[in-house]
Amino acid sequence: MLKVENLTKVYPNGTQALKNVSFEVKDGEFLAVIGLSGSGKSTLLRCINRLIEPTSGKIFWNDQDVTAASSADIRNVRRQIGMVFQQFNLVKRSTVFTNVMSGRLGYTNTLSSSLHLFSAEDRQRALSSLEQVGLADKAHVRADSLSGGQQQRVGIARALMQDPKLILADEPVASLDPVLAHSILKYLEQLNKERGITVLCSLHFLDLVHRYATSAIALKDGEIVFQGLPKQIDDAQFKAIYGQEAERVSVV
């Protein structure tokens, strides 16, 4: 279970990205985080695995205080939490296989992994992760020769290498053609339903939230303005989250 208490983040330039954010995610949930660009979604997700250091507040992951974890402990926390990024964040010039293997780094020792030496078991795991996202035949091509949707599937395979209990997905479909959005989200949904992996996913389109999420929170200017079930977001809620000018749009 993930518990966030009074989380606040102030950037050195004075921007207050998160203000007293508190919420809980139960195991097996698919939680959507919605809000405008700049509302603090990315900061929130990155605070959970401490890619960004929170200014104050606490984060508990299965009763372990993430905010107080030492640098050795945080490695241990991070490897349980997979992350999927808007820009995929693959090393473009490395092969798909190497990119997927890099998901296992938290489990392997520094020296052998730096020399690209992996156990046969880990190699097998990489191939089966790729198989799960339907890219087994692309293992030995360069990452940048893949399409955007395929690259994001590699990103998911990389997260699977970690054998994660939780996946943080930061706008995983925002850089993709809308028609590909469902294909990526279906993979996440499958992992959530079949393997019980908790998913924390920031999304732009409300209809995607309705379709995939089991619960939702909404951020506005760094504060939580909505917390509940996706279907509870009505027109009034919508205007409160996105502003009076906003219009509902939908994705195919």
């Binding site: 890619l51 490897r79 990024f85 964040n89 090393v91 490395s94 938290g106 990389r158 997260a159």
Partner: peptide
């Protein structure tokens, strides 16, 4: 990519290598 490799729990040397 540095952020992504970092997020998997890799240490500094592994991040440089990957």
């Amino acid at each position: 990519p540095i952020e992504a490799v970092n997020a998997t729990g890799a240490d500094r040397l592994q991040t440089i290598a990957y």
